[in-house]
Amino acid sequence: MRMFFVQLFIFLFAATAVADEKPTKIRLTNGEWAPYQSQDLPGYGVSSQLVTKAFEAVGIDVEYGFFPWNRAMLLVEQGAWDGTFMWVLTPERERLYLASDPLFVLREVIFYSKDNPVEAKELKDLNGKVMGALDSSAFGQQFAPLIDDGSIIVARVPNNQQLFQMLAMGRVDFVPELETSGYEAALAHLTEDQQKRIGHLERLTYPWSYHLLISRQTEHGPYFVDAFNRGMQIIRANGEFDRIIGPYIRPRSLN
């Protein structure tokens, strides 16, 4: 009987130890959004580098998988992957995912082609226009009432290359995008002449706060969120944050 209780104690102790063991690896979906995220950039882009360093600071390795953005989110929603980034929060996303503290705030602006100039002081001034937008993107969310009542038409595409080529060719009238990544897309995917024709409105800017989203289906979801938040505090304090992302969260010009 004594041996039975000894074996039972050992079993319960081992089971408790396994249950308390914290994960040392996280699997995150990623996608194409230069300069922040890309399979073809060093460290998979500066946002990916930031996420890697934050988790590294708390002893967690990151595995990335690259997918179209719609699929990247669905895989996390279903629990097939642990998390995804960098996303703005919407009521629907807060319902489906666990969200980290903000990574940083970036400015959305309205891009247009000077071949088809856009002048607007308020949202309703864009009535009758065609807006270009990315699949799964919350950019242009401020136009939702005008989209719902048909005042603005939306053309959605899977990537920024197609989006800015459509803008340069006049297939859409305006594109809401980050000032940084919008000009990055123009530089990467448009001809030199087309680049000179791209501009943005200084009015109607919109601030976005970006987050890591963790699946509610993942066993260690709350731990991953807490660990990432702690990791971000560490790399902000030691200067890694500014070194990695600082130059990329300030606007870049085509001039």
Rank of each mutant, 00 (worst) to 15 (best):
residue 25 K to V: 13
residue 94 E to Y: 02
residue 73 M to D: 10
residue 16 T to E: 06
residue 235 I to T: 03
residue 226 D to S: 14
residue 26 I to C: 03
residue 23 P to W: 08
residue 200 H to N: 14
residue 120 A to Y: 03
residue 122 E to Y: 00
residue 179 E to L: 03
residue 248 Y to S: 06
residue 123 L to C: 00
residue 222 P to A: 13
residue 213 L to H: 06
residue 5 F to R: 13
residue 239 G to H: 07
residue 241 F to L: 09
residue 227 A to D: 04
residue 56 E to K: 04
residue 156 R to G: 04
residue 38 S to W: 02
residue 148 D to L: 10
residue 128 G to N: 07
residue 71 R to Y: 04
residue 174 F to H: 08
residue 194 Q to Y: 03
residue 241 F to A: 10
residue 111 F to P: 12
residue 78 Q to R: 14
residue 78 Q to H: 08
residue 126 L to C: 07
residue 219 E to Q: 12
residue 97 Y to M: 05
residue 132 G to V: 08
residue 21 E to V: 00
residue 247 P to E: 07
residue 49 Q to R: 15
residue 186 A to H: 00
residue 214 I to L: 07
residue 214 I to F: 06
residue 75 L to H: 06
residue 135 D to S: 08
residue 94 E to H: 05
residue 242 D to C: 04
residue 124 K to V: 01
residue 119 E to Q: 10
residue 56 E to M: 03
residue 77 E to K: 14
residue 3 M to L: 15
residue 176 P to I: 09
residue 208 W to T: 09
residue 192 E to H: 06
residue 78 Q to Y: 08
residue 70 N to F: 01
residue 155 A to S: 15
residue 199 G to D: 15
residue 154 V to Q: 14
residue 175 V to D: 10
residue 60 I to K: 03
residue 141 Q to T: 02
residue 176 P to T: 05
residue 152 I to Y: 07
residue 165 Q to M: 04
residue 221 G to V: 07
residue 87 W to K: 12
residue 68 P to W: 12
residue 91 P to C: 09
residue 52 T to D: 15
residue 238 N to L: 06
residue 245 I to Y: 05
residue 129 K to G: 03
residue 249 I to G: 10
residue 14 A to P: 00
residue 18 V to M: 13
residue 235 I to S: 03
residue 114 K to P: 01
residue 219 E to D: 12
residue 129 K to A: 08
residue 165 Q to H: 03
residue 8 L to D: 07
residue 63 E to H: 08
residue 22 K to C: 00
residue 185 A to E: 02
residue 217 Q to A: 12
residue 227 A to M: 11
residue 38 S to E: 02
residue 144 A to Q: 09
residue 143 F to Y: 03
residue 67 F to H: 13
residue 202 E to H: 15
residue 236 R to T: 02
residue 226 D to T: 14
residue 104 F to Y: 15
residue 228 F to S: 04
residue 182 G to L: 04
residue 46 V to I: 11
residue 107 R to T: 15
residue 14 A to Q: 09
residue 40 D to F: 08
residue 139 F to M: 09
residue 227 A to Y: 03
residue 32 E to P: 01
residue 181 S to V: 01
residue 69 W to S: 11
residue 179 E to W: 01
residue 173 D to Q: 07
residue 12 L to M: 14
residue 37 Q to V: 00
residue 50 L to W: 10
residue 32 E to W: 02
residue 42 P to V: 02
residue 164 F to Q: 01
residue 102 P to T: 08
residue 15 A to L: 15
residue 246 G to H: 11
residue 88 V to D: 14
residue 67 F to C: 01
residue 194 Q to V: 06
residue 87 W to Y: 13
residue 21 E to Y: 07
residue 71 R to V: 14
residue 50 L to K: 06
residue 174 F to W: 05
residue 74 L to Y: 03
residue 97 Y to L: 06
residue 55 F to K: 09
residue 145 P to C: 02
residue 62 V to T: 11
residue 181 S to R: 04
residue 137 S to K: 01
residue 236 R to F: 05
residue 225 V to A: 11
residue 34 A to L: 01
residue 153 I to T: 15
residue 137 S to Q: 02
residue 128 G to D: 08
residue 162 Q to Y: 00
